[in-house]
Write a protein that binds this DNA or RNA. Structure first.
Lengths: 208, 208
DNA sequence: CCTCGATCTGTATAAAATGACAGTTACTGG
DNA sequence: CCAGTAACTGTCATTTTATACAGATCGAGG
């Protein structure tokens, strides 16, 4: 049901482009002109179809009353997770300290949240105390990826290494010891894989 | 001349807010209603004044034809500087590999560009080969800040240390030696101070 | 005192834009 | 073959919007 036709996708992309260029949504006539339609009603019907499919909202009566729903989500930005309350899902509202808009093209795959790292256990991977890691939420992890894992209500960032039923969470710092997890005895929840790192100049960072 | 009156500032802030909420600029009537004006012309005159002061652009004839100039610059995003061509200013068009939108609240002071770091000379400061550093363009640097400096047409990222007429550019890696610059003999151009670090998951990064 | 800019009211109108109705064409699944 | 949907053309009444013109007030500066 939510599948867009190629033409509809073109229309959405055109509206996005127009928003970037002009700072306001296009009118029906402007859409029609851009696509070579000889009637504004062609645009009207596309907009109706896209509204039915939930891609955008139309404000009745308002000129340029087109609102892309995706852009709303983008306006929200990535949530920054600080301290994770025990037992709560990681993206619970009470864990969110702030939201930051980040260009989605910057990281891939697309991150779902930012997590503030505590401690220096990943120092040699260039992840310092206070850094923010961009995390893509997925349970699929491969060995040697840096993951966000939850063990006994404790959230940690470590390099993942699987050896049959044994998972090793490897720090990147000789002062720390690897953590051994026997999946037959303990539950390990993978909260996602790290797809980027972000350090703010402010705070106790190592510069300025 | 570019000083806005308090009322004008309110108008600009209102337009920004409206853009965030509705995804389209307000009409004159909508501005008038929000401020309690009994005539849309009051809004019209504010818009004219703001256009004269260069804060926004008005598209004649278009409904909701208000474009905030700041938001245009924000839409452009931060330029990513890769290889710096010898002799060219760092922000020359040919040095720009891409542009990324970054939440301005994320770093402070506000960065002007991103620079791709080559080599591991700042490893112990958590800056690895291929990382992007967010740089605030200023010639004012204090000792111990990490700076972007240009020496003999070579752009480097190092920790700054001044000792009278002698400047030391300190690596954060025991395998590298400090660079000694005598300001009486050599010219050192400070291209800015590092206000943040950003690592993309892709590439030859140390994870995934 | 006079002028000027900022900040408004009040009125009016042309242009821009929405949104409805009546058709057409082409393709797709039953 | 028929119904349904996507993708249009063509027309037009109504509403929304921009924008011009004629005032009014108030405070700052010469």
């Amino acid at each position: 049901m939510n599948e867009l036709t190629p033409r509809q996708r073109q229309i959405v992309e055109f509206i996005q482009q127009w928003l970037m260029d002009a700072g306001r949504p296009p009118t029906r006539a402007e859409i029609a002109k851009a696509f070579g339609f000889k009637s504004p009603n062609a645009a009207e019907e596309h907009l109706r179809a896209l509204q039915r499919k939930g891609v955008l909202d139309l404000s009745p009566g308002a000129s340029r009353g087109i609102q892309l729903k995706d852009s709303l989500r983008e306006q929200m930005g990535l949530p920054l997770i600080g301290r994770v309350a025990a037992g709560k899902p990681i993206l619970a509202e009470e864990n969110i300290e702030a939201r930051y808009q980040i260009d989605p093209q910057l990281f891939s795959p697309r991150p779902h949240y930012l997590l503030k790292v505590k401690g220096m256990s990943m120092k040699d991977a260039g992840i310092l105390d206070g850094d923010l890691v961009a995390v893509h939420r997925t349970p699929e992890v491969r060995s040697r990826q840096i993951v966000v894992a939850r063990l006994e209500n404790e959230v940690t960032v470590k390099r993942y290494k699987q050896d049959g039923p044994i998972v090793w969470l490897m720090p990147a710092n000789d002062d720390f010891d690897p953590i051994r997890v026997d999946l037959k005895e303990q539950s390990l929840i993978i909260e996602g894989v790290v797809v980027g790192v972000l350090r703010q100049g402010t705070g106790k960072g190592s510069f300025q």
